[in-house]
Simulated assay, not measured.
Amino acid sequence: MTPPEAKGQRSNAPPPQPPAVLSCADPAAPIGLRVQILTQRADFLRAASARRQATTGFLLQARARGDDNAAVRVGFTCSKKIGNAVARNRAKRRLREVARAMLPLLAQTGWDYVLVGRPQVTIDRNFAMLLQDLACALARVHGPAQSKNGVLK
């Protein structure tokens, strides 16, 4: 027979595990930085006509909204070039997880971001490399603007 536990002794029970699925509204995000999901087609079109930064794993489209809302909004899209529905959904899941991990740390308030999956690469690329791709893309988007010939604007 096992004696009852005395106060102050450690339990043999495993520590609580974090949930398996986390939403983009990460509670560990810095105070005031809320990440919302883009759903309206018009928002995707406005982001597509703004800044773009290509990476090996995906394309990042970003724009400053210019409104008083401090939330960061993010959208995800994958065309049929990615593959069938299973492949597109997998690519979007990977992009959502990359955004959940990096946007609360590196995004600027008042911006919209759209991550566009690339055929073959988004699904097959190492996840750590996708994280690095997003960090580099955000640094370039928020850095000084350059013209096509490389001169600072």
Rank of each mutant, 00 (worst) to 15 (best):
R90G: 05
L130W: 02
R94K: 07
P16Y: 00
A137T: 09
R63D: 05
L131C: 08
L60F: 09
G117R: 03
P3S: 15
A139Q: 15
V98E: 05
M1F: 14
T109I: 08
L106H: 14
V141E: 00
S79V: 06
R100L: 11
A91V: 01
Q40I: 04
A135N: 11
Q146P: 00
A85T: 15
R93E: 13
V35C: 12
A42C: 07
R90Q: 14
F127Y: 14
P144I: 06
R93T: 02
K80Q: 15
G66L: 13
A139G: 15
R90K: 15
L95G: 02
P119V: 07
L38F: 10
S49K: 14
R63F: 04
A25P: 05
Q53R: 13
N89C: 08
A101T: 02
V72S: 05
Q61W: 02
L131R: 09
L45R: 11
M102R: 13
T39K: 11
G143K: 10
A20F: 06
N84I: 06
R140L: 09
L59I: 12
P14S: 06
D68L: 07
P144S: 10
D26K: 09
A101N: 01
V121N: 03
C136A: 14
V74Q: 06
P4Q: 14
V21I: 10
R10P: 02
P14Y: 03
A47W: 00
A71W: 05
A70D: 13
A71P: 06
D68M: 03
C24N: 13
D112R: 01
V35P: 04
M102S: 11
K92A: 07
N89D: 08
V121F: 11
V151L: 12
R93K: 12
L95C: 03
L152E: 09
L138H: 08
T109E: 12
P104T: 03
A85I: 08
D133I: 10
A28N: 09
Q120Y: 10
V74K: 04
V121T: 11
V86E: 13
T109W: 02
V21P: 01
T122S: 08
L152P: 04
G83H: 04
M129E: 15
T56F: 01
L138I: 13
F58S: 00
A54P: 10
A64P: 09
V116E: 00
T122G: 01
N126Q: 15
F44W: 02
D43W: 00
Q108F: 07
A64D: 05
P3T: 14
R90D: 05
V114C: 01
T77N: 10
N69W: 13
D67H: 11
A25T: 02
V21H: 08
D43S: 09
A137S: 05
V116R: 02
S23P: 06
A64Q: 15
A107R: 06
F76A: 03
